[in-house]
Amino acid sequence: MDNTENQNTQVENTQTDNTAVADSQNQAPQMSMADQIATRNKQLQTSEIPNQRGVTKDITINAGTKYEYTLTIQYPGIGIASQIEDDATNPNGSIRFSDLMQGAVESDVFVSPHIKSVAFWDSHKGYGEVAHEVLSFLNDGIDGNLE
């Protein structure tokens, strides 16, 4: 057999159950559909994180001043957190704090004290600081990074 015939000859290695096929270039065998599904199912199980709904965080506002106070905020779950952010986002992508905070109040994100109205900040400093903390907290939950 000369070089030309040798180059044109392909070697195929197949198993009788068709679960893997390798070609003459020593590529890795292809997974069967059943093996791919099993691998993906295992990934789904091993990639799970603890449920973040209900995770709380204490935030201290105006730290180190005479106006310092601490709030406990609670993650409302991915659906509500996403909706709060969607409702507070302008078409240009910026966040409207008024809508963000109203959504957080209405969704019981503030659990201690249980704040029932944004009017709470008529007599407490730090509305903007709280809004930034809430946005960061909701984003961490949406990203699955709360602990």
Score class of each variant (00 low, 15 high):
residue 46 T to N: 06
residue 1 M to R: 10
residue 6 N to V: 08
residue 85 E to I: 15
residue 5 E to K: 12
residue 121 W to P: 01
residue 112 S to A: 14
residue 113 P to T: 06
residue 21 V to I: 12
residue 22 A to R: 10
residue 114 H to N: 09
residue 143 D to Y: 07
residue 110 F to M: 01
residue 53 R to W: 02
residue 39 T to D: 10
residue 89 T to A: 08
residue 8 N to V: 03
residue 35 D to E: 15
residue 91 P to K: 07
residue 66 K to H: 07
residue 101 M to H: 02
residue 100 L to M: 03
residue 130 V to S: 00
residue 129 E to T: 09
residue 147 E to A: 14
residue 40 R to K: 15
residue 63 A to S: 11
residue 65 T to F: 08
residue 9 T to F: 12
residue 17 D to V: 05
residue 75 Y to T: 03
residue 124 H to Y: 07
residue 109 V to F: 02
residue 72 T to R: 11
residue 95 I to P: 00
residue 23 D to S: 08
residue 87 D to A: 12
residue 55 V to E: 06
residue 107 S to G: 01
residue 101 M to T: 04
residue 4 T to A: 14
residue 41 N to W: 05
residue 98 S to E: 10
residue 99 D to N: 09
residue 111 V to S: 02
residue 61 I to Y: 03
residue 17 D to K: 06
residue 38 A to L: 11
residue 37 I to Q: 04
residue 47 S to L: 13
residue 51 N to T: 13
residue 111 V to Q: 06
residue 122 D to F: 02
residue 37 I to K: 05
residue 123 S to R: 09
residue 71 L to C: 06
residue 42 K to M: 10
residue 10 Q to E: 12
residue 126 G to D: 02
residue 12 E to V: 15
residue 33 M to I: 13
residue 16 T to C: 10
residue 89 T to N: 07
residue 15 Q to W: 10
residue 112 S to D: 13
residue 85 E to L: 15
residue 84 I to D: 00
residue 115 I to R: 00
residue 18 N to L: 13
residue 116 K to W: 03
residue 29 P to Y: 08
residue 127 Y to F: 07
